[in-house]
Amino acid sequence: PGLLEPTSCLIRVAKSAATLGIAIEGGANTRQPLPRIVTIQRGGSAHNSGKLKVGHVILEVNGTTMRGKEHREAARIIAEAFKMTDKDHVDFLVTEFN
């Protein structure tokens, strides 16, 4: 990988609590074109996993790209991934770089 290539990281969050417990900002056609985590709530599944961090930019959710998705669409995809009962986890591909 070249120096300018952002490093991405796959993070699996187990559905260990009733909520995912993250707040996101951003989406296509905003200043932050990919959703970025702005809050992680204590006691939520994301907090329990210990791996997602404030500032992480979400590239993919369960293999679905966030690129080109407007804020509400990105939020809907994440919410549905958490609600889906066929999986006990949600996979996030994230990067720390914008």
Partner: peptide, 15 residues
């Protein structure tokens, strides 16, 4: 001129 300066801020959604 940077394009992103003309783009609006995003709303925030709690999930």
């Amino acid at each position: 001129r940077e394009k992103r300066l003309t783009l609006p801020p995003s709303e925030i959604t709690l999930l």
